[in-house]
Design a binder for these strands. Structure first.
Lengths: 214, 214
DNA sequence: TAGATTGTTAATCGATTAACAATC
DNA sequence: TAGATTGTTAATCGATTAACAATC
């Protein structure tokens, strides 16, 4: 049960969580793979297959307890932890994430933001301080930061990533739109390419008025 | 050559574009599937297979002309068009997209933004006017809007989407974090789930310090 | 117990990789 | 021409679906 969980499965887990939360909020207590599948638009087989990567959540003849399954998946994803995160770059996107993104709901916690603008440095955003980028390395080291969120201009992406990784960060959530060159072993990188997403939408929209989603 | 291009291929096309642009910016004129593959971290076979979904871009014994291949893929993605887009919801994320996102580089064009806040309505953001949401439907109809970008609170997502689709929008770029219930045939939906992305990063970061990306 | 639904194995399907003949 | 590299077919691999025995 601990051989190697496929990429596709991992990427589906957060979606399960969302739908289970939805069911829970409606007061639903149990769900069968068939019901969940029809809500989510996937097969019951796939659900059972996916869940078995982790362990026997269900009960034969009954189905799955919504709350229990939700917690099981959350545990598998490590949502109980509090990964310590910093935002690097307080442009509009960095600001949007700092102010509106629910880090806690993803098993994370924002602990600081960094920028170079003297108008921003020294103040705070939301509940966290805004520091100068020159303090990035020492801050990461001193505060055991786990994740760096890159929301700065593309040209500075590689530098910031290298600095963060050098100081001990283990994960990079990269919004700069450029695939990172940095590739330290033991560092996980999640590239968010918004333009890829819009281009994909454009493709489907034009071709036959076809659907797509995830 | 027009049977049905797989999802996986479509999702890879924007990435090809990015790397080809990079090569072009370095003055590289030709590239072989082997070279491109090693830069992008995928196999030469996959590249040749992918590209053949569209048409004979390459030249045997030579490779691919970077600019030509780039344009070929761009055409396949429909990047030449100018999809007309509106942003609905001018919170921090909507603002970030309105001000910083390069719609033109994705074959789109931002034509207006909508909000309910009287402090925002009537002004403009970047180069486009900010209108009241009550004008959304008529604006979409009158201006042949193709895409609605949803950056408003989750609770209003379904309503806004339904209104936009009813008025003629064909694509929805959804940042609300909730899978849309609206499912009109002929409407394409691209859900951007930032929290899924961070959760996935968290998973890989914790498990063995393993990599992942796309 | 009978009915339902899981866990899990087997079958199918699709996607990736390898191989190689065509050809520039 | 000889060398390189594509386009394309065949082989492999993995992921999804179907089936069914185990069991609640």
């Amino acid at each position: 049960m601990n051989y190697k969980i496929s990429n596709n499965v991992i990427k589906r887990l957060p979606r399960y969580i969302r739908y289970l939360d939805l069911l829970a909020s409606e007061g639903v207590q149990k769900v069968s793979s068939g019901e969940l599948g029809s809500i989510m638009g996937i097969t019951a087989s796939q659900i059972r297959q996916d869940l078995n990567c982790f362990g026997g959540f269900g009960q034969q003849g009954y189905g799955y307890n919504v709350a229990q399954l939700r917690d099981g998946i959350a545990a598998a994803l490590g949502m109980g932890d509090r990964l310590r995160a910093v935002i690097i770059g307080l442009g509009n996107l960095g600001k949007a994430l700092a102010l509106n993104f629910r880090f806690e709901e993803c098993g994370a916690e924002l602990v600081a933001a960094f920028d170079v603008d003297p108008d921003k440095v020294g103040k705070s955003i939301g509940a966290v301080p805004v520091l100068h980028v020159s303090e990035l390395e020492s801050f990461i080291r001193d505060n055991a930061v786990d994740v760096a969120v890159l929301t700065l201009p593309q040209s500075m992406a590689d530098g910031a990533a290298a600095c963060a990784v050098g100081a001990g960060v283990r994960g990079i959530w990269n919004f700069t739109g450029k695939d990172l060159g940095v590739e330290l072993p033991g560092t996980s990188i999640e590239n968010v390419h918004l333009s890829d997403s819009l281009l994909t939408l454009g493709y489907y929209l034009r071709s036959d008025g076809g659907k797509e989603t995830r």
